[in-house]
Design a protein around this nucleic acid. Structure first.
Ligand SMILES: [Mn+2]
Ligand SMILES: [Mn+2]
Ligand SMILES: [Mn+2]
Ligand SMILES: [Mn+2]
Lengths: 221, 221
DNA sequence: TGTTAGTTTTTGAGTAGTCAAATTAGATCC
DNA sequence: GGATCTAATTTGACTACTCAAAAACTAACA
């Protein structure tokens, strides 16, 4: 059985790998995402390599093995189902579910997760629009593009928010920018570094930085 | 913040203290209940004493301080609310809730527990009839007597099962011996070491050992 | 009173995870 | 080709928890 620390490293490696062009995750990136020093990450990565969860390329980075990916998807499934539960059942605000899920995901059994999945009616996405892997480990995400790559004038629907930071999420909530909401993209300026959208229903407009807009995934219907 | 190991020790000390005439819990008892060697228990108890959770009487045993009792009751509240949730909401069998609760109790936040309490409608007891402490730390248990101290001929109602062992609980389930069920006490023999009861509705009779009967708490209405 | 059995404590060692600080390897830039 | 900057690795040390085995204490019994 993997410890909760190992579970956490594997999950982080998966998500970092996802948001990365080149396959391997370098130590700097991993250590920052884990909140540990680079030396600690190196030590742990060697251990993960020993137990076949990652392949380690010294001075370059890590890559998940098939076994590691399995574990990562199981953790993502746990995390996201728990987030859905906290919001839908216990009445958490969707901007606050992350922290509690982060600890619960390491304490639940497979039995718990499967029963929870059933109780929630087999949801496909969590409160942030992140897709929930099935119990067999398959995951399918909707086709989306980052908001900062869309062409102005087009109508877009918010599908997913990639950042888990409560401050970011509360800010998005104030702008009505969350999964399911429709907007018209008014302006997108790489030079000015801003993206402006107008909410379809309320006509309210919001301007966010280019970097943040990259973490807002939308569909162009 | 106490680690989950510390939380577990404190909870165990509380329950052992409860089922004990003399106040102090000796090392042998504590180490057995924790599943560690006596030396380990001694080491930990010294640490718990350093952080004011227990008072340690060398070569005699430990006693919770007020601070320790606070923590113990918070843990018991968590444990029992989680057990109630697993049974009532997720559909666990009440004989199986203990193991999962044992890990979850260390991973939930106060916010989680208070929201769960509300969602469940502020239950007073868990699936085994154990009373659930309030968020302010008060606990009130119904007046009960162990089944092996009752006088034959009397009608009794099962209120609480003290043992968490799944085998014991499944056995009790087969006999219909669980909170809320009514029986007539037919025979109680300290010599033979058995207690025989008859289920009021079904007329089915059950015989259990004297020791086990001591873990079945009943009310004589 | 002396012996013995049971309990408790001490000691030394091991695992998992972490950090600080020194060192090494690569890349980049003149 | 060097000088320099950054990322990565190594080393030594620390915390929290654990065990095995030896030593010490207590209590009770002969
Ligand atoms: Mn986590
Ligand atoms: Mn999420
Ligand atoms: Mn526990
Ligand atoms: Mn219980």
């Amino acid at each position: 059985m993997p410890t909760s620390t190992v579970e956490q490293y594997i999950k982080i490696i998966y998500t970092q790998q996802e948001h990365l062009e080149k396959g391997v995750v370098p130590m700097k990136r991993l250590s920052e995402a884990m909140g540990v020093t680079p030396g600690t990450a190196t030590t742990m990565v060697k251990h993960l390599s020993d137990v076949q969860l990652v392949t380690y390329h010294p001075r370059q980075g890590v890559l998940l093995t098939a076994k590691g990916e399995d574990l990562a998807l199981r953790m993502l499934r746990r995390h996201r189902l728990i987030e859905a539960f906290l919001e839908q059942v216990l009445g958490y605000d969707w901007s606050e579910v992350h922290a509690d899920a982060e600890r619960l995901e390491h304490a639940v059994s497979d039995k718990f997760i499967d029963k929870l999945d059933r109780y929630l009616g087999y949801p496909e996405v969590d409160p942030h629009g992140d897709p929930i892997p099935s119990s067999s480990g398959s995951i399918e995400s909707a086709v989306t593009v980052p908001l900062n790559t869309c062409t102005p004038g087009r109508r877009v629907r918010i599908v997913r928010l990639l950042d888990d930071d409560p401050d970011f999420l509360v800010c998005m909530k104030d702008y009505m920018i969350f999964p399911g909401e429709d907007f018209i993209l008014q302006e997108s300026s790489a030079v000015a570094g801003t993206v402006t959208v107008e909410h379809l229903r309320t006509r309210g407009s919001a301007t966010v930085g280019y970097g943040l807009a990259g973490r807002i995934l939308v569909a162009e219907p």
